[in-house]
Design a protein around this nucleic acid. Structure first.
Length: 302
DNA sequence: CCTAACCCCTGCTTGC
DNA sequence: TGCAAGCAGGGGTTAG
């Protein structure tokens, strides 16, 4: 469930591996993934051709991130927008013999099927000069969209309504406070809707609330300034740490080289309902908010 | 304008 | 053992 730390860790991992490489050819095995996003996913031959032709022979010049989106810029001004949604992966395998995708067990080489690419869930393959970039997505929720230039991307309003970037220098407490106070409703729902601050998903929303000792079910208008300050401090503490640790591999999230992130072991509440609170020892509670499982400590979160 | 419910999809877990 | 229901959740879409 790639959230901001996972997407950012992936971006940083991909940079040295693929920036500067030319796309020799893109193979698309699931045209709907490059045709549209949302719930009405229809394959389009036109979009498929635009994607293949637009990326053919272009060089990847940079990778940026906005919220949980990855933005690949091409040397002719073209852009590939990638969203991993729940189970998307971008894994790069170099041509050098160091990635044989074979492991040795008991002296006999065995194939690691989970690391063998392409696999049954590989839907887009970028053949690069020095290696191959695979897009895998078990549940096919993610998408890769091609735009001829930045203006076209902007005109389609993909980023409209998104809140502040929590890793940016400009993300200070006053900004967060003003944006949060302008909203109403339940704290966690506001975190998940990306309008105040982007990048928190179900994992980090719960982790931030726990760290700040604020219940995720609290209404925005009940929050004291000191509590909002605590939430802010937890966001700017937890997200960079999670990025540095490669994110949380709780489902099938992988880094650019196919390895797993290490932040899952830092989780204090996510996935721990019914277990003891690591801060006060009481049993962690579970509830459902906006259709999402929510875990918190009823004792030490206020 | 808003919010809540539904939906996209597969694989793993749980219960009978 | 099998098989169905439940669950995982980002976020676009739709109904109200």
């Amino acid at each position: 469930m790639p959230e901001l730390p996972e997407v950012e860790a992936l971006r940083r991992g991909l940079l040295p591996l693929i920036v500067g490489q030319k796309i020799k050819k893109a193979e698309v095995k699931m045209p709907k993934l490059v045709s549209s996003k949302g719930t009405t996913r229809v394959s389009s031959d036109l979009k498929l051709q635009e994607f293949i032709q637009g990326t053919l022979g272009r060089t990847i010049e940079g990778i940026e991130r906005r919220a949980k989106n990855l933005i690949f810029s091409l040397n002719d001004g073209g852009i590939i927008l990638v969203h991993l949604k729940m189970t998307g992966q971008l894994v790069y395998k170099g041509k050098s013999g160091t990635d044989k995708q074979i492991s040795v067990s008991g002296g006999h080489p065995i194939e690691l099927s989970e690391n063998s690419l392409p696999n049954k869930h590989t839907y887009v393959i970028f053949n690069l000069e020095h290696g191959t970039l695979y897009y895998n997505d078990v549940r096919q929720f993610g998408y890769l969209l091609y735009f001829t230039d930045k203006k076209t991307l902007e005109s389609q309003k993909h980023f409209d309504g998104l809140g502040a970037e929590p890793l940016d220098k400009g993300f200070d407490f006053e900004l967060f406070y003003e944006k949060l106070k302008a909203k109403s409703g339940i704290l966690k729902k506001v975190f998940l809707d990306q309008t105040v601050v982007v990048g928190l998903g179900n994992i980090y929303a719960d982790e931030v609330c726990f760290d700040a000792m604020v219940k995720p079910l609290r209404s925005i208008n009940s929050l004291k300034k000191s509590e909002i300050k605590a939430l802010y401090e937890s966001i700017v503490k937890i997200l960079p740490k999670a990025v540095a640790m490669g994110g949380s591999s709780v489902s099938n999230y992988l880094l650019a080289d196919g390895s797993k992130g290490n932040y899952a072991r830092e989780h204090k509440v996510y996935g721990r309902a019914g277990q003891v609170c690591l801060r006060c020892g009481k049993t962690l509670q579970k509830t459902v908010l906006g259709g999402r499982t929510t875990v918190f400590c009823d004792n030490c979160q206020k």
